[in-house]
Amino acid sequence: MNIKEFGQNFFGPLLSQYLKSVFEGSNEGHLYYCLAREGHFIQAAISELKKQGLLDTTIDSRYLIVSRVFMFKILLGAPESWQFSLSPKFEGNLQTLLAHRFNLSQTIIDSILSEAEQTTDINLPEDIDTVKAVFLKHHNELSSVVSGAKIAYLAYLEYKGFGVDDIEHNVLDIGYSGTIQKLLTLLTSTSTTGHYFIASKPGTHVVAGNNVQMHGVFKEGVKLGDGHVMLDRSLFLESLLTAPSAQLVDLRINPLAPDNEEKFEFFYGMRANCQKQFYLLQELMSGAIEHVVHCFKYDIEYSNDDLDNLYEQYVSKPNMIPHGVRHLFEIDDAISGNATISYQQLFQL
Score class of each variant (00 low, 15 high):
Lys73Val: 02
His40Ile: 06
Leu55Ala: 00
Gln181Ser: 14
Tyr63Trp: 08
Leu76Ser: 00
Tyr343Ile: 08
Arg271Gln: 12
Asn211Phe: 06
His139Ile: 14
Ser286Leu: 06
Asp259Val: 02
Leu154Asn: 15
Leu240Gln: 14
Ala334Leu: 12
Thr190Leu: 06
His323Ser: 15
Val292Trp: 01
His169Cys: 05
Ile331Thr: 15
Thr96Lys: 14
Ser26Gly: 09
Gln345Val: 07
Tyr153Arg: 09
Phe70Gln: 06
His195Arg: 05
Asn170Gly: 10
Glu126Gln: 11
Leu251Gly: 12
Tyr196Ile: 04
His195Asp: 02
Gln181Asn: 13
Ile253Met: 11
Glu28Tyr: 05
Lys89Ala: 15
Glu238Phe: 00
Leu113Asp: 01
Ile112Asn: 04
Leu224Asp: 10
Ile174Ala: 11
Ile180Lys: 08
Leu235Asn: 13
Thr185Met: 04
Ala149Asp: 14
Lys150Met: 07
Ala36Tyr: 01
Leu310Asn: 11
Gly209Thr: 09
His294Lys: 13
Ala243Cys: 03
Leu237Gly: 14
Asp129Gln: 13
Thr185Cys: 12
His169Tyr: 01
Asn2Asp: 15
Val164Phe: 05
Leu280Trp: 02
Tyr279Asp: 15
Phe267Ser: 15
Leu54Gly: 00
Ile289Ala: 05
Asn93Thr: 10
Gly203His: 10
Val145Ser: 07
Lys263Val: 02
Ser111Trp: 01
Gln118Phe: 04
His205Ile: 09
Gly324Tyr: 01
Leu14Arg: 07
Thr188Tyr: 01
Leu307Asn: 12
Val293Ser: 03
Glu5Asn: 08
Asp333Ser: 13
Ile331Met: 11
Asn309Cys: 04
His327Arg: 07
Gly227Tyr: 04
Asn140Ile: 03
Phe218Gln: 06
Lys132Ile: 15
Gln213Pro: 00
Ile198His: 08
Val22Gly: 08
Gly203Asp: 12
Gln8Thr: 12
Glu301Arg: 10
Phe267Tyr: 07
Gly203Asn: 13
Asp110Glu: 14
His215Val: 02
Arg233Ala: 11
Gln344Ser: 11
Val171Arg: 07
Pro202His: 10
Cys274Tyr: 03
Leu49Thr: 08
Tyr279Ser: 15
Asp232Leu: 01
Ile174Asp: 08
Arg68Thr: 03
Gln8Arg: 14
Asp299Glu: 10
Ala272Tyr: 03
Gly175Arg: 10
Leu75Phe: 02
Met270Pro: 02
Gly225Met: 04
Gln282Trp: 00
Val249Gly: 04
Ile42His: 00
Thr130Leu: 13
Ile331Lys: 11
Leu328Trp: 08
Phe197His: 06
Ala155Met: 01
Leu256Phe: 09
Val292Met: 03
Arg252Ser: 14
Asn2Leu: 01
Leu235His: 15
Phe41Leu: 05
Phe72Trp: 05
Leu284Asp: 09
Glu312Asp: 12
Leu281Met: 09
Ala78Val: 06
Phe218His: 09
Leu186Met: 13
Tyr279Arg: 14
Ala257Arg: 13
Met1His: 07
Ile65Tyr: 07
Glu80Pro: 13
Leu349Arg: 10
Asn27Gly: 06
Val249Phe: 05
Pro88Ser: 03
